[in-house]
Design a protein around this nucleic acid. Structure first.
Lengths: 222, 222
DNA sequence: AATATGACTGGATTCGTTTTCTGGTCATAT
DNA sequence: ATATGACCAGAAAACGAATCCAGTCATATT
């Protein structure tokens, strides 16, 4: 009985301990990798450094991730999810549908800008992301899902506006998609042959606001 | 008198001959360069080859262009002008303003696609263009002017629609600008983290048409 | 048995050197 | 006044040696 109790307790502790340690280790690896990537860039960061910073052996890293690339993709996906959350929060706040559309889109654009400007290696990381994404269909899938989630946040606001008679939208999904597509030039990499790339966050947001208001004219109920 | 005549004729012939030869040489250089660039890419093409193909000495190339980069930029500018011309032609045709907006934008997008897909080295050329443009302010200026011209073609159509009471546009220039900006994702390089890049010309045009019709809802008089 | 580790490996990358190539110049020719 | 091609310097390629580092695996630990 004591044995059984000890056994259960021990097993429970072992399981919990392992899982907790495991989760902790995973998180430590992600944290260490994020700092390294931001400070030194993707290529200059080695798995050995990440493992050392995280306080685990090198092999342990490979128990949690298939490789360096997956660590980076995982980090970016987390950032993307975080942005989606912010958008949801903005969409859930009390405001007119027009304002919500404005704010949801601005949130997305500003957050992406913020994330890419946070580090001196932002450009390298963006390039690397695009590169890696091309050869990781499973992550492509997950990224697409996340974009889908963002479309849906916007679609929700459109629906709300629709019910309130402010917007005239038939296919919310498609409209949200087109709407966000029209903002391609506000996302990095800012490749603008002709137009100059935005110089500052303020300039970016001002441009985005103009675009939002232009696009919303087509949404309004007439 | 005969002397004067001969003199004038000779001078005229010389001038005309020189200018004609000169213009011919310039054109021959551009033609040769275009073929080489399309067939072998920018980097693999040498000035010696261009000169040989054009049937002129190497030094002559430098009488007409400041360097290899300027030859390429000149060629691209010519293509851009040609596209503007096509847009003007479409805008001048008889059609409803809505149709003209559709067609003008489709012309632009299709032509750019066409130009970039014409060669296996389209991507290299686009990259090279962006690169070179960064260090050639005078060409930047000329490219911007050409884009301005394209905005104006579209602005003209908007104005026409406005007069006919079909569109409600206050600032034609700015509207044209925003309108074209919304199509960034339809121009190369097609960098789409999430959305797939267009696979074919047909897919591209279909997407563009959807976008045009979406955007035009905001333009219509209510 | 389940998990963690770090020494080890080989393919990739970097580095330093040599060689080739090529954009641009200029003295000469027409 | 215009056209040319030999020439030059600096860039790019080619190469091999040295180094690095992602990923593996035999072993250790619990």
């Amino acid at each position: 009985m004591a044995g059984a109790i000890r056994g259960r307790a021990a097993r429970g502790a072992a399981e919990a301990g392992q899982r907790q340690n495991s989760a902790e280790a995973r998180q430590a690896i992600l944290d260490a990798a994020r700092l390294r990537f931001l400070h030194y860039g993707y290529k200059k960061t080695t798995i050995d450094e990440i493992a050392a910073d995280a306080g685990v052996g090198k092999g342990t890293v490979y128990l949690h991730f298939e490789g360096k690339d997956e660590i980076m993709l995982t980090l970016v996906l987390l950032v993307k999810r975080n942005i989606t959350e912010q958008m949801r929060a903005v969409a859930a706040a009390v405001a007119s549908p027009e304002d919500k559309v404005r704010r949801v889109i601005l949130t997305l654009i500003s957050s992406v800008y913020e994330a890419c400007t946070a580090s001196a290696h932002g450009n390298e990381l963006v390039d690397e992301l695009h590169l890696q994404l091309r050869s990781h269909p499973e992550f492509q899938e997950r990224f697409t899902q996340e974009m889908q989630a963002q479309y849906e946040v916007l679609a929700g606001v459109l629906h709300e506006g629709s019910r309130q008679g402010v917007f005239a939208v038939t296919d919310r999904e498609k409209t949200a998609h087109l709407l966000l597509m029209a903002f391609s030039s506000f996302f990095p990499p800012y490749i603008c042959p002709g137009n100059p790339a935005p110089r500052s966050r303020a300039e970016l947001e001002a441009g985005a606001l103009e675009m939002v208001d232009f696009l919303m004219r087509g949404l309004k109920q007439r």
